[in-house]
Simulated assay, not measured.
Amino acid sequence: MTQRTPDNRQIEAPEVAAWWAERRQYLERIRKVPELRQKFWREALFYIIRRLLWSFGFFPVFIAFWLPFVLASFNPVVMANDLIPLLQAFIDSNPEQQANSISTLLIAWLSIGSFFLVFDFVLTPFRSPYQYEADVYMKSWEQLNHDQLPEKT
Rank of each mutant, 00 (worst) to 15 (best):
F74Y: 14
A17S: 11
V122T: 03
P34C: 02
I48D: 13
L110S: 04
Y137G: 09
F65T: 15
P150D: 09
V77T: 13
T124P: 00
R51E: 12
L87G: 06
F115L: 03
V61L: 09
A99W: 01
A80Q: 11
T2K: 08
S55W: 09
V16G: 03
E43R: 14
S111L: 03
T124H: 13
M1E: 13
R23G: 05
A80Y: 10
S93E: 03
L123M: 11
P129Y: 01
L67D: 03
A44Y: 09
P14D: 06
P14T: 00
L117R: 00
F121Y: 13
T124L: 11
V77I: 14
V78Q: 12
I63F: 09
A108Q: 02
M79N: 07
T2N: 07
A44N: 06
I91R: 05
P129W: 03
S128E: 00
N145M: 06
R23S: 14
W19N: 10
I49Y: 06
Q3L: 09
E28M: 08
V122C: 00
L110A: 00
N100D: 06
A17N: 05
V118H: 00
Q10S: 14
H146D: 13
E43H: 05
P60E: 04
Q38S: 10
R50L: 07
S55H: 05
S101H: 02
